[in-house]
Write a protein that binds this DNA or RNA. Sequence first.
DNA 1: GGGGGCCTACCGAACGTTCGGTTGCGTTGA
DNA 2: TCAACGCAACCGAACGTTCGGTAGGCCCCC
Lengths: 221, 221
Amino acid sequence: MDTSLTDRDTDAGLRIRSAAVLLFARQGYAATSIRDLARAVNLTNAGIYHHVSSKEALLADLMRAGHRGLIDATARLLDGVQQPSDRLALLIASLTAIHARSPLTTRVMDGELRSLTPGSTAHDEIIALRDEYEDHWRRALADGAGQGVFRVADQKLSRLALMSMCTGTSEWYRPDGDSSLEQVCAEFVAIGLAAVRAPARPTASADLSLLPDFPWEPPDA
Amino acid sequence: MDTSLTDRDTDAGLRIRSAAVLLFARQGYAATSIRDLARAVNLTNAGIYHHVSSKEALLADLMRAGHRGLIDATARLLDGVQQPSDRLALLIASLTAIHARSPLTTRVMDGELRSLTPGSTAHDEIIALRDEYEDHWRRALADGAGQGVFRVADQKLSRLALMSMCTGTSEWYRPDGDSSLEQVCAEFVAIGLAAVRAPARPTASADLSLLPDFPWEPPDA
DNA sequence: GGGGGCCTACCGAACGTTCGGTTGCGTTGA
DNA sequence: TCAACGCAACCGAACGTTCGGTAGGCCCCC
């Protein structure tokens, strides 16, 4: 008897997104053809267009949903947290964790902006979402510097350095590798707080269960 | 009267490389056609093939020369430098500086490995060159940890974090931006040494004139 | 006069996308 | 109860365009 949750992966739309994020992350958007995608989900190239209006719209959908998930999760995580060093620690841990847990989606989010037609609605929208996310970092660093708890030569410089460190995780992290996700996050938080000369780090660690689990992120590497 | 250095940019090979690195960095290798490249250097697509054996060979050439330049410059910079913290500082400053000064070439080097046919001679060669470069980092961190001057939870983790910080520079640095190249390098060195808990940083700063100037790197942004 | 440098013209293949058609399931009306 | 209908899901074939690459010839300079 079948006790499982019905037809989980019969939803073609989800399977297409899943294959798309895998191929876009591995080969890049431009090097991935609709036929590649169709083969991966056992459809013909024409069949894809029943579920997707265009190749670029598919990319835009993935990027939009990814950014919204990140922004929402970040807002939930930071909710009520006051100390700038706590906020920065949460930002570092969560950005690192999402890049480790959803490396394919984040690689597409971080690297395929240039594949959206410049000036298109989708392109502008993704830029706005990215800015909205980065504002969390800007505010945390500005608050910390304003309160004198961070001593930092250049807020923008520090932010870019730390964000690069976190986003780079999607390029090398493997769940079965040498370090656990918790170790990576802890180490990166330590580096980040040292970078802004924050005094000994305190209090709560990030509740990673608040992070989004993108339903289309393939489970494998 | 023309007092300039003769026919600098009449060398078609160089102009092609210059345009290629610009287009590959901006649009990606897969999204750049031979015809795009030809238009950029005022040739026809067929004319390109008089100077280049294939599109992929052109990419491989750029990546190979870029990596060799980086490796050679790093060896020169580190020559005779003993202290692990000095070596690490030089590695951080030089990797940051080359990504700031040659953002297009480094973006291609860092991001287009996947565009080389897997298993091809060129692909394997570039991987070997990248490993050869990273060994400089591995040795510096191992030496520092071995001598007890670095206190670091995980050498690989620290290396990846710091290298991501440095390579990220090519994505945002602008010569006319808020911070000078020297400021960026100094700040990143400070962050890096704090990351490995090195005691107060000492001695020589990097002689950036030892870094390679890729002749094909376009001067503009 | 011969070769480097570049052209016009073209090839076969692959591209994103569209179109007309078929299948099969769920709902409806008599 | 069952024919009739609607519609989501998909396919095979083709559209026009662009792709990486090639063949052969023209021109200019040594």
